[in-house]
Nucleic acid binder design. Sequence first.
DNA 1: GCCTGACATAACCGAAACCTTATAGCGTTA
DNA 2: TAACGCTATAAGGTTTCGGTTATGTCAGGC
Lengths: 332, 332
Amino acid sequence: MSGTSDHWDRRIGRRVTLRDLHVLLAVVQWGSMAKAATHLSVSQPAISKAVADLERAVGARLLDRSPSGITPTPFGSVLVKRGLAVFDELRQGINELEFLADPTTGEVRIGCPESIAAGLLPAVVERFTRQYPKMVLRVAQAQTVTSEFNELRERTVDLMIGRIARPFTEEGLSAEILFEEPLYIVAGAQSRWAKRRKLTLAELAGERWILTPPNEVLSSPVAAAFHAQGLEPPHATVVSFSFHLRNHLLANTDFISLIPASMLRLFNARQTVLKALPVDTKFEPLPVGIVTRKNQQPSPEAQLFIDCARSMVDTIITTPEFTKSATHKTAG
Amino acid sequence: MSGTSDHWDRRIGRRVTLRDLHVLLAVVQWGSMAKAATHLSVSQPAISKAVADLERAVGARLLDRSPSGITPTPFGSVLVKRGLAVFDELRQGINELEFLADPTTGEVRIGCPESIAAGLLPAVVERFTRQYPKMVLRVAQAQTVTSEFNELRERTVDLMIGRIARPFTEEGLSAEILFEEPLYIVAGAQSRWAKRRKLTLAELAGERWILTPPNEVLSSPVAAAFHAQGLEPPHATVVSFSFHLRNHLLANTDFISLIPASMLRLFNARQTVLKALPVDTKFEPLPVGIVTRKNQQPSPEAQLFIDCARSMVDTIITTPEFTKSATHKTAG
DNA sequence: GCCTGACATAACCGAAACCTTATAGCGTTA
DNA sequence: TAACGCTATAAGGTTTCGGTTATGTCAGGC
């Protein structure tokens, strides 16, 4: 290291400053120097100069200037990427220092879809906060898994917890499967299907279904199951992510839906509202897992949280809804 | 990001400077402020002040001062670790810029043991340099795999290529197996064993063996093979990494050794010097692979090199020494 | 052709950053 | 106990950094 470091350090380390990098990030983020200037509460020339300095330092044009603002050149994009990493590394560093000073303090930023936030997460959060009372948990909910992943990539959240597709092929992210969650075809307890002791998927083909939007993890099992029996996937009468909406519709009308075990347990605590239908079809259980950034180890607090979540898997998968998954008996 | 960034940036980003970080790294590296001062060509108080500034900025004692120098506190160690990452990120950034400016230029720093440097590497290097003539390859040889891994961890090299133990459990590193290399028990062509058409491992137990030091990847297969037959591992008369030494001893005396296929091919081009003995024992082939830092993607040049190495696997494993591995015929 | 929005340049200024030399404190060691 | 090695502090000087206001340049919309 020492061999090249001296030379390199003098050429770059002294010229590239954190401030310049930060200005670059702001400019790219806001799309124009003027906007960045107002957001950083400095004058526009200051920004202009900082960017110019940086460009001189690295010897490459970083931004394309136009009358309507700026767009980063490929060079700029690269430096933005690295700049984000640099600042994140720093942030993680001082974060780690604070954690070292008081290992019970810290902050974990979690991203998750509604289904997890309502089902699994509370259990984990409860244990975690009891174990580390001074720890702060920030939970960001997201409508779609895609935007969730972007938040993870942009380092707005430390980890994501949710149902993950398999194989998991998101660029730059890595997933750890916590457990497999059974899926149930569910109708309201008052539904005419609820009384049946046995029924086939084909019988349900014409029903009114509540599904999630296509391309989402939860929507494919239904289509796959129907397809496996040579049936057309059912027509979705309602398409929504909201489990509350679903639950309400199921409980009060004749809708049918596919919901994960944890949701069934949550909404059906007294087991009088919903009923898992004894359909003769096998659904691939849905993997639930934790997604983190590849190429970067999580903060110590995040690691604690992950460990906590992992340690809860056993208690989760021994609940009735999980163990009964293979037999597809009614859960009501 | 913007939510916390403003606040955070003002508190830390403005106080922690790259220079201070760099000073900290140097001080820790050299073990004392005075030494760091001379190495950085500044006066000692400058160093002292920089460290004090940094400590004030992060609000934690980073170094334990003693009359004989300094040792980093846990806080210091953490910040050193992050500091290294920060500088590496920066270096990678400008490196990427240069690569972007001229994708044929660049530098790949490779670490590997002698066996690879002599056997596999030349082939890869030849293709790689032909493909990217302006690329600079730095090859650092290491005696032991352990020190090799340290170089990788310290970011002195971009990647390591060598025989890797399986399972691969090095903390913070990840390995990709390129191919499996057969192992041969070899003696000199003049050896009395060379004339035999068939022989057992037990017959060789009393011979004079050349082995690598214990705990190294290459030494265990021999011990394992003997152990599998209920035999005591042979006594190593010569213990060395040097393949040249080995080859010389094998060719001129009655030594016996275990060498990988690529070495056999290299030293036995005309097939008159060494002879692979037709022993009735199966050796687990040794995986050869590329080790990189986990949690960090390699530089674009390094990626090119890895791709190149990967693409050469096919041509390598179709050479006679490789394909014959299962039958254990003589290779001479 | 004339505004307008957006960035670049110039001139200038204060604060801080960074360096130096000199000196003091303080364990270790001869 | 004196010398030595290492670090901290003080005092003082340059440099440069980060910022301002004022002004220039340039492309496009009306």
